[in-house]
């Protein structure tokens, strides 16, 4: 090889190899964290959760009963939006406008007009999945929800997301470190966005007792492989 080519080729290969190693070692290149796909309808969580005060479990109804968190049926949306149509009057939620997203919803649900209900040609909305763990992982939502883990601990502050993105890496290491190190109610409430003052008041903190928050007790969980991999 010529001197010149040696000085180009060899460092080039070293750089490429180093790049591959770093990327794969941290799985940053293959991680779906921060991914925010475009959804068929740009469902605004802030409006529904913050402004209207809807609980996560209203739509994701089986998160406290089943490994599967549950996706709202189209009829859940139509339950309100049958009457809350695309022609929005001026309210405290915004000025008078035509909502393109609600028009999309009406198209999917084959709603002829406000109050008409779902039509015969209704089709389910093909949401793009964001959070997915591999099929060899069995993740039971209800165990976590019932252990007091706030939704936002893993899913981030969805109530503030105009478009949902994947907040956590969902890596096994991330799961295991919480199981090993434990989870405290205080952390959960912080993740949910409660300020320290809010955490101290029973009403704001919801179902979590302030005593639990103050004690700082860490709930630990099983971490051996057969807990999730079977």
């Amino acid at each position: 090889m010529t001197q010149r080519r040696k000085w180009t080729a060899i460092p080039g290969l070293v750089v490429l190899a180093a790049g591959a190693v770093i990327l794969s070692a941290y799985s940053g290149a293959s991680s779906s964290q921060h991914r925010s796909p475009v959804q068929p309808i740009n469902f605004p969580h802030p409006v529904h959760v913050q402004k209207l005060g809807m609980n996560c479990l209203y739509c994701h109804f089986s998160a406290n009963k089943s490994p599967d968190p549950g996706l709202p049926a189209v009829s859940t949306c139509i339950g309100c939006h049958n009457l809350v149509g695309p022609q929005r009057p001026a309210t405290d939620l915004g000025p008078a406008r035509t909502s393109a997203e609600l028009q999309k919803l009406y198209k999917f649900a084959d709603v002829a007009g406000m109050g008409a209900g779902m039509g015969p040609k209704a089709k389910p909305i093909p949401w793009v999945r964001i959070h997915k763990v591999p099929e060899y992982v069995h993740f039971p939502h209800m165990r976590h929800v019932n252990a007091g883990v706030t939704c936002q601990t893993c899913h981030g502050q969805i109530q503030n997301m105009d478009r949902v993105y994947q907040f956590s890496s969902l890596n096994m290491g991330w799961c295991v470190s919480c199981h090993v190190n434990g989870y405290s109610a205080k952390e959960g409430l912080e993740a949910a966005g409660y300020t320290a003052q809010q955490q101290a008041t029973p009403a704001a903190a919801g179902a979590v007792a302030p005593a639990d928050v103050q004690s700082g007790e860490r709930k630990k969980a099983r971490y051996d492989c057969a807990n999730c991999h079977y």
């Binding site: 009963k65 490994p67 599967d68 549950g70 999945r129 964001i130 997915k132």
Partner: peptide, 18 residues
Amino acid sequence: TGKLIPYLVSPDQTVPGV
């Protein structure tokens, strides 16, 4: 990750995943 397809109307007495 594919798509998540909801029901049009949730069937009675059925909890998904159970």
